[in-house]
Nucleic acid binder design. Sequence first.
DNA 1: TATTGTTATACTCTATAACTATA
DNA 2: TATAGTTATAGAGTATAACAATA
Lengths: 154, 154
Amino acid sequence: MSQVAQLESDLRDRLAHTSLADEPFFLAARLSALGSAAANRVLTDLGLKVRSYSVLAFACGDPKPTQRELSQFLVLDPSQIVALVDELEALGAVERHPDPRDRRSKIIVATASGRRLHRKAKQLVDEQARESLHRLDDRQRAQFLELLHVVAID
Amino acid sequence: MSQVAQLESDLRDRLAHTSLADEPFFLAARLSALGSAAANRVLTDLGLKVRSYSVLAFACGDPKPTQRELSQFLVLDPSQIVALVDELEALGAVERHPDPRDRRSKIIVATASGRRLHRKAKQLVDEQARESLHRLDDRQRAQFLELLHVVAID
DNA sequence: TATTGTTATACTCTATAACTATA
DNA sequence: TATAGTTATAGAGTATAACAATA
């Protein structure tokens, strides 16, 4: 049914005083669940989800990733990348290019329209992220991102 | 196959300089995926997973949660709580008690052996968490937890 | 009428193994 | 022998609707 778990203040207070509230993996899972749901909601109109958006973002960056690298970046099995790339390819957003240095590999590169799509999507996602961090002031937000960066990118 | 995505330093460096590396939802998702996998690995021997461990933790806390509350805390559909509680009940770790204030609700409360199980599990999980945050010093870790707390607990 | 727990079901995601072509 | 991408498939997780008991 509904699963968006907007907590009333008394429930929030109870959650805040649980033993789990000090366990980073629980907090990260909760943040991830809430964040992904929100991001997916915002991306639907563009035909994207968090996963495909992430692949597209890498395909827009430099250097271009192979599928193997994508699977490591996104913590997904290589076999799952196939469907994601297929999906974006069907949208005309990315193409599979041969890797000149290893003919087994395929490099995923965004098309011009893929880059436009990414620009629009990033704007929506960034705005949504700003909202979900609204309880932090500028300094705290910067700090949080820096620490999260260190912790999440092994 | 393997999906534990231990990155080599050059790949880590590439990931660190991607546009996604500044998007909190992506970092949270990555941290959550890595953290849950690690926590699940550590909990297997006790017959628990992250989800069931989380339910057990609430059932050990005070005040005891209803299933409805659990679904909000864990950002899961109420129908999914049923199976989790069934699972813990089969382990003899929790019991469903009638809620004196609302006979529709069931309060989930840990048994004595459930509390022992939780104690053991928490020790393993905490140790694992400390490891995965090893790149932060004490002050940073405290800061990170505080900010994560604010952001994840709406 | 609305809500709690439950069941059922369809759908998505995840994990694993095997295949092919390259290395 | 090992690795990149692919396919197939089974299992786990997710979303949705409907029902009985209770509010």
